Simulated assay, not measured.
Amino acid sequence: MRVSVPGIPQAILDASPALALRSIPEAIQRLTEFIGAGNVALLTGAGVSVDSGIRAYRGEDGRYMNPNYKPIFFHELMDPSASGYAFRQRYWLRSYLGYPPVRDAQPNTSHFALAALQHTSHLSHIITQNVDGLHHKAIRNTTGTQWPPDRIQKSILELHGTLHHVQCSKGHTVDRDTFQEWLSLANPKWHQYAQELELTGNQPRTNPDGDVAVEQLGISYDDFVVPECPECMLSDHVNSAYKPRVIFFGESIPQPVKIQSYEVVENSERLLLMGTTLATYSAFRLLKHALELKKPVMLLNVGPTRADGMPSVEKLDVPSGAVMRDVAKAVIGTRAEEDPVIVGMLASGIDNPPSLDDDDRAPRAAG
């Protein structure tokens, strides 16, 4: 089976930078006009979570942070053979160590600004490629919103799934915190090591999918134990084929999610893209669908994207954290100063991006 990792076409990366709006005041004005009319669908990518301390997949030149990165594919992770178990040992050790920073990450100012725009119905829906759950946190953590879980579920569509739940190959699901406890009990040595990492703050670099590179630390995966599914054991079936509820390379997006993403675009009047290079086709096809329907499209992203050069896409080459709080205030108007819920949202959010030297461009062990 040959499965390739999606990326931005080389011709775009090699081309001269496309002209795009870079002025912060102009970007605020254009976004305010675009969102202010209402009924806007939003598609977000990893760039929106950078200010929460979560690294993006690609840098400002549009290329992977680690050019040596070799992801585990769906068919490798779920392979019931000994070879598949070895892949699971590698994946789950790295994810076991890398999940806590994603679990503990807090929404940034962009997340809360977008939550405020959802609260006022200026944004009809958010489709996110991110698996960190920070859009949900921004809504839930705001005192006074009182959004029922079903409304949050309907208004935020996780296109690529979530790290916060785990399921076996038979479909038995467990929340991630419980699965982390199972991994700790099965691997006391690694549990102690993980505790030492949290105490010292010497956390390995974590990718947006919760993966960390540990080979340079001299770590072997051979002694890591992936637990068996207790539900499967009740049926006398031994099964360690676990995966987070995330869409892996080589895995298809569930049809209901795909259909819903198309319906969101169809039922909106315009489409806003934010913090995404559109390298994955699951996101790029939503842009294509919007353009086929003659919807206005705006793209807010720093660096090259797969949409560069498309004449119907207006691009703003600025980071979301530099503009979205001011945009939300301008769009919402006086309620941004009078409504205590909205005031709280627009006063919330961290600003803690990874350090500028947190870059994997230098060659290192393949991940």
Rank of each mutant, 00 (worst) to 15 (best):
D177N: 13
Y221H: 12
E196D: 14
E228Q: 09
T206A: 13
F224I: 04
P208S: 13
H164Y: 13
I247M: 07
L159S: 12
F284M: 10
R270K: 12
E215P: 00
E228D: 13
N267S: 03
D236R: 02
E292M: 08
S220F: 09
V264Q: 05
E292V: 08
L157E: 02
V297K: 08
W182C: 05
V226F: 10
M274E: 05
F248T: 02
L183E: 08
V246A: 10
E231D: 09
F224E: 08
V265M: 02
T173C: 08
E181M: 14
K243M: 05
F179R: 04
R285F: 01
V214L: 15
L183H: 07
N267D: 13
E263A: 05
N267R: 12
T277N: 14
N267M: 00
M233T: 07
E251W: 08
S169G: 12
Q216E: 14
L217D: 15
L199K: 14
M274R: 01
H160L: 14
V246I: 11
T276I: 05
K288R: 14
L183S: 09
F224A: 09
C232M: 03
S184T: 12
V257R: 05
L291A: 03
E181F: 04
L287T: 02
P254G: 01
F248Y: 15
L273H: 07
P254R: 01
E181G: 07
Y242W: 15
R205D: 10
Q180C: 02
D177K: 13
L272R: 06
W190R: 07
L291Y: 01
L183C: 10
Q216G: 12
F179M: 09
T200P: 09
G250Y: 05
D236T: 02
S282G: 15
E228Y: 08
Q255T: 11
H289F: 12
V297L: 02
R245E: 15
D211N: 09
N202I: 06
P296Q: 11
L286W: 04
I253H: 02
V257E: 03
H164K: 11
V212F: 06
L299I: 10
V225T: 15
A194T: 07
E269V: 06
L197K: 13
P227M: 04
L300C: 13
L163S: 10
V265W: 01
K258C: 02
K243G: 06
K294M: 10
T280D: 14
N202W: 03
I259H: 05
E215F: 12
D175R: 11
V226M: 08
A290Y: 00
H191V: 03
Q216Y: 12
L271N: 00
Q167Y: 12
L159Y: 11
H172N: 01
H160N: 14
P208E: 10
R245F: 01
M298Y: 00
P254H: 03
